[in-house]
Design a protein around this nucleic acid. Structure first.
Lengths: 122, 122
DNA sequence: GAGATTGTTTCGAAATTCGAAACACACCCG
DNA sequence: CGGGTGTGTTTCGAATTTCGAAACAATCTC
């Protein structure tokens, strides 16, 4: 399970197109979440574990290694922090966040339209 | 492994914050990739399998079920297609794509700075 | 130097994904 | 109608990934 790099074949694509390498990297459990938690500033390993309920430390360190190898995060005095490259992901994460809110609204709308789980919807 | 929904506890968060549900959903292998492949228009299951080298059909159908349950994709006459909600992910995917290109450039720059794997860099 | 806090690794168990094969259904050709 | 071909989908054992809990190391406090 090598860390994907742009320009190198990855799982899902032999071409090494950067977007494919990125999707291999971020399609791993907790990878996006770790970046999300680091967006506001550095955090230590145990702080990250505390914020990501259910993440096991073995996976955290696996992800940290991968993200460091990718140049997205780096160790700092206060734990781990986004590098400039990692910070460049912020627009994408923000866009993601906005979409998630749209999603939530759509689900609420659906719930109103389909009160089928209750007998006497009103 | 229930399909995550905004407003409902998911792996990694009991709060059900939409962004957490989204990260649970998209942090599964091939999920982002399937959306990426569908961004330009509908594709059938076998076409998706062909585009995603190495994806097994069992996982494809698992992801398709989850994405349908989430209202992100829907069956169409030509296979599967993004719903309006799914299409709303395009800005995020595009932003992601741009970042991946930045990443690739950063890696090229690094390669020039550290010709340590060759004895007589030049 | 004992206790508390954080960083990190280890390892068996559980969950996920792979990989290949099979079944079902429609379509086309003769 | 009978046989190929192409697509959609499910199944199941093997391989990989993640979980979960524990342990060890290093730092800081008192």
């Amino acid at each position: 399970m090598p860390t994907p790099h742009p320009g190198t074949p990855v799982r899902g694509s032999t071409t090494g197109r950067p977007i494919m390498a990125a999707m291999d990297l971020f399609g791993r459990r907790w990878a996006l979440r770790v970046l999300w938690e680091l967006r506001a500033g550095p955090l230590g390993a145990r702080a990250l574990l505390a914020r990501c309920e259910g993440m096991s430390s073995s996976v955290l360190y696996q992800r940290l290694r991968e993200l460091m190898a990718s140049g997205i995060i780096a160790p700092s005095a206060d734990g781990y922090e986004l590098t400039p490259l990692g910070a460049a992901l912020s627009p994408a994460l923000r866009s993601f966040h906005e979409w998630a809110n749209t999603w939530a609204q759509a689900q609420e709308a659906d719930a109103l339209k389909e009160p089928l789980t209750q007998s006497g919807g009103g």
